[in-house]
């Protein structure tokens, strides 16, 4: 019996975890969300930009990052459109173009006056990793073979007359799950060109991102689903991240419960073996 508490079959943990997450997503209870300093810094930085400023959005993730990064991307784009900020986006990850399309498609229906090519441009994915990023700084047209993610010539898009490369951006916001990601942007763009960089990252990357925020190399961070939920609260549009925080809360609680059970089993088993 004792060994069972300390050694629960992992399949039981998996089934319970799945059930808890599903129930919380279907029936959210709406736990209160407090905005952190890191998220507020990103919000304030966008808020301070003059209307018409161009911001580079780096969609450096693929399908796995959608649950945590897509809500952040949507909330940030929403905030930008409210402030008349314009966006140029792309990325070094193969799904960069699709991720950008997904984010803008979700937001544009609330901003009927915003037009593609005027208020935002999606350059999409281009191969070459940091080599491409390096080329994008000065000559976006050359680095992107002169077309956007949908095959439209960049020369035909009005926004691209004002955006010759990332050097023309007032700020960069990148959505990252791994490599290439934050260090590549710091090394290639923000350090030599002094363009402010904000990061939205998945939870696993948060500990590794903190040194960059702490040193000021990254101005702020929308960190994990928690950060995305905070941004949704800031722009008054609660979405999937706010709902996801309930699921995350209960999932964490379940894991903690199992850790406690495991330790009780461990202590009892140890006492038992000493008594023998």
């Amino acid at each position: 019996m004792l060994s069972k508490i300390g050694n629960v079959d992992r399949r039981i943990i998996y089934v319970l975890l799945c059930a808890v997450i599903a129930i919380a997503l279907i029936k959210p209870v709406g736990l209160a969300i407090k905005v952190s300093a890191e998220t507020k810094k990103v919000y304030d930085a966008i808020d301070r930009l003059p209307p018409g400023s161009i911001v580079w959005l780096g969609f450096e993730f693929d399908a796995g990052g959608i649950p945590e990064l897509m809500p952040a991307a949507r909330a940030i784009i929403r905030h930008g459109f409210q402030k008349d900020i314009r966006f140029v986006c792309g990325g070094m990850w193969t799904m960069a173009g699709d991720m950008a399309t997904m984010a803008f498609d979700a937001v544009k229906k609330d901003f009927p006056d915003k037009q593609y090519g005027v208020d935002w441009v999606n350059i999409g994915y281009r191969p070459g990793n940091t080599i491409w990023l390096d080329q994008m700084i000065k000559d976006a047209a050359a680095a992107s073979a002169g077309v956007d993610s949908y095959g439209n010539p960049l020369a035909d898009l009005p926004l691209m007359q004002e955006f010759t490369g990332i050097k023309d951006a007032k700020m960069m916001i990148i959505f990252v799950t791994g490599t290439p990601g934050t260090p590549e942007y710091i090394k290639t763009v923000s350090t030599p060109y002094g363009i402010p960089l904000a990061v939205s990252t998945i939870s696993v990357e948060v500990p590794g991102t903190m040194p960059y925020i702490n040193s000021g190399q990254v101005l702020g961070g929308v960190l994990g689903m928690k950060g995305a939920a905070e941004y949704e609260v800031l722009v008054n549009k609660p979405g999937s991240a706010v709902a996801g925080m309930d699921a995350q809360s209960f999932a964490h609680a379940l894991i903690i419960l199992f850790i406690i059970l495991g330790n009780i089993g461990y202590i009892l088993e140890k006492k038992n073996s000493v008594a023998k």
Partner: peptide, 26 residues
């Protein structure tokens, strides 16, 4: 590709739970 990637990636949550249960002992 994308749904398959997302599926494998999301299995991580289960592995995190079982690893935490096994590793965090006093």
């Amino acid at each position: 590709i994308a749904p398959m990637n997302a599926t494998v990636y999301s299995t991580l949550v289960f592995y995190i739970a079982s690893a935490a249960y096994r590793a965090f002992r006093i």
